[in-house]
Amino acid sequence: MTEMASPPAAAAVPRRFRRERRSGAMSWGARISLLFILICLAVMAGVELLPLQDPAKQDLANTLAPISGDHWIGTDELGRDLFSRLMWGVHTSLLAGLTAVAVAVGVGLPLGLLAGYLGGWIDQLLSRLADVVLTVPALILLLAAQTALDTSIQGQMMVLGGIFAPRVLRVIRAETLSVSTAAFVTAGRMSGASHLRILWRYLLPGVRAQVVVQISYLLGLAMVVEAGISFLGIGVKPPDSSLGTLLIGASAMLSNHPHVVLVPATVLTLLILSLNVFGDSLTAQRKK
């Protein structure tokens, strides 16, 4: 009896996800967004291999230079090459965002699975802890952590990931409650599978699409937070560059040298927009 029940349960999972993948094609907007995201990720991963000028090298005799062959998008107020600083800014901002998302998913995903699968007092405890964290504004927690620990930008993003974790927990908990009633999970229980196997083999594949959606949204949100705190001077410290630090002094230069501000602002806007469009596309496909 046990040997007959296991194969259909194991086979039901891949068939289900094949149906989900066939349910809707990705729109052109989502494809373009994904391409832009992949380009930015490639820049983040390979920026050290690119033939760029030193982003911290100052040339005070060549400040706010226009676009030229030596400086593809000009120089800033200290004569530093803007293109090089933009590439390193994408690297820093994306790496910071990915750090926050990794912590959020690493904490929220397993706790959400446990809360949705086990229920009872564990579900109640984790849900109440999530509610407590979500009631405190993220910026206040970040400022408190920076004041108490004087952490680097990566440390601040780890704190931000802890702030995001309750959101992931609640979403994964709700998704787990839905998936746990599926026939293939019930068959897994009847076949005598352990709790760990059910969580890993049946429930985790059932929530992975929602995990990807949350990653796309939270990555964009984390980059907005990083840009905000760096703009305020408590994030990335000079001479390092991020998309947030490149906007410092924007109001003073926007009228006479708009490219110094508009180029990094456009890249940041497009990247966050691409993440949101891609996340919306994944959500729409899951509903079909």
Rank of each mutant, 00 (worst) to 15 (best):
S33H: 03
S281H: 08
L78P: 00
A284N: 10
I229G: 01
G116H: 03
L143Y: 05
L262R: 10
R201L: 12
L118H: 06
Q146F: 09
G97W: 11
N256L: 15
G192A: 07
C40L: 08
F164S: 01
S6H: 10
L169S: 03
S180V: 14
D123W: 06
P258S: 05
E175V: 07
V105W: 00
G89T: 01
Y217F: 15
P205C: 14
I73R: 01
G108N: 08
S194Q: 10
V107D: 02
G155T: 12
L113I: 13
D150M: 12
H71N: 15
A227D: 00
A222S: 12
W28D: 11
A9V: 04
V47G: 02
C40Q: 05
A193P: 00
W88Q: 06
P205Y: 08
S152D: 15
G46N: 02
A193N: 06
N256P: 03
L232H: 05
R189Y: 10
L52Y: 00
R170T: 10
S152T: 15
I140Y: 03
Q154A: 14
G116Y: 03
S230Q: 01
Q156G: 15
L268F: 09
R197N: 10
K237I: 15
P110W: 02
D59W: 14
L221V: 09
I234L: 11
A11I: 03
V13G: 03
V225A: 12
R85M: 11
A102M: 03
L113M: 14
R31I: 09
A250G: 09
S27A: 08
A42M: 07
R80C: 02
I198W: 04
G112M: 07
F231K: 01
Y202I: 04
L270G: 12
S251C: 08
Q146T: 06
A209S: 13
V213D: 00
W121A: 13
Q285R: 13
P238D: 06
T176R: 04
S33T: 05
L218Q: 11
A61I: 14
A284R: 11
A25P: 02
T186G: 06
W200I: 13
Q156L: 15
L118V: 14
T283G: 10
F231N: 01
V236R: 03
V224C: 07
S191I: 06
V47T: 11
G24I: 05
L273P: 00
L271P: 00
R201E: 11
V105R: 04
L160P: 01
I272F: 09
A9C: 05
L270S: 12
M1H: 05
Q146K: 11
G228P: 01
A56I: 10
S180R: 15
S127K: 12
A96V: 11
A144I: 12
R21F: 15
V213F: 01
S152N: 14
A61E: 12
L247C: 08
V13R: 02
